[in-house]
Simulated assay, not measured.
Amino acid sequence: MLLSKPEPAPQFSLFRRFVSDARKLAEKSRRAEKERQTGEIGTLVKDPATGEYRLKSEGE
């Protein structure tokens, strides 16, 4: 008889998703507040392949 690992309850996976989304939202809020305080327009990131700088997109 093979025993398999029990699947996590759907509520637990929903809770993990909620916590993950809350952390992303909090980070986005902190970044926006910092940009507002310093007058920044956005954050620059360096492309390692080309060495050029670009504005950081929202999904990064």
Score class of each variant (00 low, 15 high):
Glu40Ala: 15
Ser29Trp: 04
Ser4His: 03
Thr38Ile: 12
Ala26Gln: 09
Phe18Met: 12
Glu35Cys: 15
Glu40Met: 08
Lys34Arg: 12
Ala32Ile: 04
Ser57Pro: 03
Thr38Glu: 07
Val45Cys: 06
Leu2Tyr: 12
Met1Phe: 10
Tyr53Asn: 07
Pro6Trp: 07
Lys56Trp: 01
Arg54Lys: 15
Arg31Cys: 01
Tyr53Phe: 15
Thr38Leu: 15
Glu58Gly: 02
Lys56Ala: 14
Gln37Ala: 13
Leu2Gly: 02
Glu40Phe: 03
Glu7Ser: 03
Gln11Lys: 12
Glu7Ile: 01
Glu58Gln: 13
Gly51Met: 09
Ile41Arg: 00
Glu35Phe: 11
Lys24Ser: 13
Glu58Met: 07
Lys24Ala: 14
Phe15Met: 10
Glu58Ala: 15
Glu52Asn: 02
Met1Val: 08
Gly51Lys: 10
Leu2Glu: 07
Pro10Lys: 11
Lys46Glu: 01
Lys46Met: 12
Pro8Trp: 06
Phe15Glu: 10
Tyr53Ala: 10
Ser57Gly: 05
Val19Lys: 07
Leu44Pro: 01
Glu40Gln: 08
Gly42Ile: 05
Pro6Leu: 13
Glu27Gln: 15
Gln37Glu: 08
Gln11Asp: 14
Ala26Tyr: 09
Arg23Pro: 00
Lys56Thr: 05
Thr50Ser: 15
Arg17Gln: 14
Leu44His: 07
Thr50Tyr: 03
Arg23Thr: 07
Arg36Asp: 09
Thr43Glu: 14
Asp47His: 04
Thr38Met: 07
Ser29Met: 09
Leu25Glu: 13
Arg54Gly: 01
Ser57Val: 03
Ala32Trp: 07
Lys28Met: 11
Glu33Ile: 10
Arg54Ser: 13
Gly42Gln: 07
Lys24Asp: 11
Arg36Gly: 01
Leu55Gln: 14
Thr50Asn: 03
Val45Arg: 11
Lys24Ile: 01
Glu33Leu: 13
Gly51Ile: 09
Lys46Cys: 10
Ser29Leu: 06
Glu60Asn: 01
Arg31Val: 10
Lys56Asn: 09
Lys28Asp: 04
Glu40Asn: 09
Arg23Asp: 02
Ala9His: 12
Pro10Arg: 11
Arg23Gln: 08
Glu52Met: 08
Pro48Lys: 14
Ser20Gly: 14
Phe12Met: 08
Leu3Val: 14
Ser4Lys: 04
Thr43Trp: 02
Asp47Lys: 00
Ala49Pro: 00
Ser13Asn: 13
Glu58Thr: 13
Arg17Phe: 08
Lys5His: 15
Arg16Ala: 12
Gln11Met: 05
Glu58Lys: 14
Phe12Asn: 03
Lys24Glu: 13
Arg54Asp: 00
Gln11Phe: 05
Ala26Phe: 06
Phe18Leu: 04
Glu27Ile: 06
Glu60Ile: 08
Leu3Pro: 04
Gly59Trp: 02
Arg54Phe: 14
Leu14Ile: 01
Pro48Tyr: 06
Thr50Phe: 02
Lys46Ser: 08
Met1Leu: 04
Gly42Tyr: 04
Ser20Thr: 15
Leu2Val: 11
Gly39Val: 07
Pro6His: 05
Thr50Gln: 06
Gln37Asn: 08
Lys56His: 01
Ala9Pro: 00
Thr43Gln: 06
Arg17Thr: 03
Leu14His: 05
Lys34Ala: 15
Ile41Val: 07
Ser4Glu: 05
Pro10Glu: 09
Ile41Ser: 05
Gln37Gly: 05
